[in-house]
Amino acid sequence: MSKGGNIIEIHGLKKSYDDGKIKALNGLNLEVKRGEFLSIMGPSGSGKSTLLNMIGALDVADEGTIKVAGIDLMNTKELNEFRSQEIGFVFQMHNLIPNLTVLENVEIPMYETDLSSSQMHERAMDILKAVDLEDKADQIPTKLSGGQRQRVAIARALVNRPSIILADEPTGSLDSKTGDVILKLLSDLHEKENVTLVMVTHEPYVGKMAERIVNVLDGKIQN
């Protein structure tokens, strides 16, 4: 797969909490190419999840520059729109809405788009087919296995056709066998959809599936 220019450009990014006592990011620099599969590794508290939240515009940095998909996140107020159009999140916990069906859960991100109900339905069914859950569309998440729920979460992350998937410990709550299936699915979708995949993990064998690994320690990239 051909890689384009940088889709993520981060320079001197700083973020602290608790009135500056906790420095989560401490002048971090990172560049990610469009279509790349990157693993961010590091011990607990190293700042890897904070970094992911900054890339996904869930949080705002104190200092530095961060440009994602051509958008300067330090100077834009339309962060919701940015997340809706450019980012797909996969969390450790699937975070599906329990009273909605699988299909309805996948449709949720499309509410901020101009798609009609039938278009939303059609697109959600297509993506469920891609994660092999077409037959579970009308079930509620509590009836699914852990792996199936995470596949629904991946479908939800992909349904708006984002340019970047941000996965925070996507296999953390799964057994190793199911985790492998999810990783394979993410990897395949990354290839097939030409989507940039940034995955946070502390499991070395998971990290090795990526094309590139960066290690974060004390809020900085080590390699």
């Binding site: 869930l58 940015f82 997340r83 809706s84 999140f89 975070n95 809405i97 949720i108 991100p109 708006n160």
Partner: peptide, 11 residues
Amino acid sequence: EIGVLKAVGWK
């Protein structure tokens, strides 16, 4: 859940 809705772009 509200956090997820915000993460997927809900205003």
